[in-house]
């Protein structure tokens, strides 16, 4: 396991080098902007994966009431927020080059921003509850409820309205329109980002345990009194 973690650094370095040096920029995009796909899409994928992991461990907490499941769920939400912010930032850089402004109120941009609000609310909700058992239970219920309604925000709402966003990686015909080098680096990036997330999740879960043992269970610093 330790060896895999050590290998992740050269692996990600190779993915970044490949994204800039091996792959040709795609047609129909200004300058080098198409290279953002190797960073933007894996960030979005990792954020979605993190929120799914949070939902799975929330369900596990409600079934077994094991505090470790709650710690993992909370850590996954924190990391999901980090990757969602990176998705917004990389998307905004692309938007500035292609559409002339960092923020265009495009349905996909807006829906991802709301996704950040959705899971930031999870942390606010937890921070407002004093009792650790109740905090974990209410947090788990919210995370599961949010996971059920999240697809409407991320997948349905942007499709109800017109969008400037380029075609998604898997298009409406179910095909991936990429040449072999692009596809190779793209999927290598997805694997790398996923591995990075799993590593960070382990660290953040351990940190969560240390924080709780130290009595710092209120990371946002919001007082519980009304």
């Amino acid at each position: 396991m330790k060896l895999l973690k050590l290998l992740l650094l050269p692996y990600m370095a190779a993915v970044i080098a490949g994204a800039f040096l091996w792959v040709e920029p795609a047609e129909g995009f200004i300058g080098e902007s198409s290279r953002i796909v190797f960073f933007h899409v894996p960030c979005a994928w990792t954020a979605a994966l993190a929120f799914v992991v949070a939902a799975a461990y929330s369900l596990a907490y409600l079934v077994r009431r094991n505090p470790r499941s709650d710690r993992i769920a909370e850590a996954a939400v924190r990391l999901g927020l980090l990757f969602a912010v990176l998705t917004i930032v990389t998307g905004s850089v692309f938007a500035k080059i292609m559409w002339g402004a960092y923020w265009n109120w495009d349905p996909r941009q807006s829906s991802y921003l709301l996704l950040i609000f959705l899971y930031a609310a999870y942390l606010f909700l937890r921070a407002a509850i004093d009792d650790p058992e109740r905090r974990a239970r209410i947090g788990a219920a919210y995370a599961l409820f949010a996971a059920v309604l999240m697809p409407f925000l991320v997948f349905v709402a942007p499709r109800v309205t017109e969008s400037l966003h380029p075609q998604t990686v898997i298009n409406t015909e179910g095909k991936i329109l990429m040449d072999t080098p692009t596809k190779t680096i793209f999927f290598a990036g997805l694997v790398g980002f996923t591995a990075l997330f799993l590593w960070l999740l382990e660290i953040e879960t351990r940190l969560g345990g240390i924080r709780r043992r130290g009595g710092a269970g209120r990371p946002l610093g919001i007082p519980a009194s009304n």
């Binding site: 909700l125 407002a128 109740r134 409407f152 925000l153 349905v156 709402a157 109800v160 309205t161 919001i222």
Partner: peptide, 26 residues
């Protein structure tokens, strides 16, 4: 969910808005 938390009224707005946008748009 928010009934027994602190800052209930503010908290309700914070948690409800992102969940209700996918309802309000259609």
């Amino acid at each position: 969910l928010v009934a027994r938390g602190g800052q209930r009224n503010v908290l309700f707005v914070v948690v409800s808005f992102p969940l209700l946008v996918p309802l309000l748009l259609p």
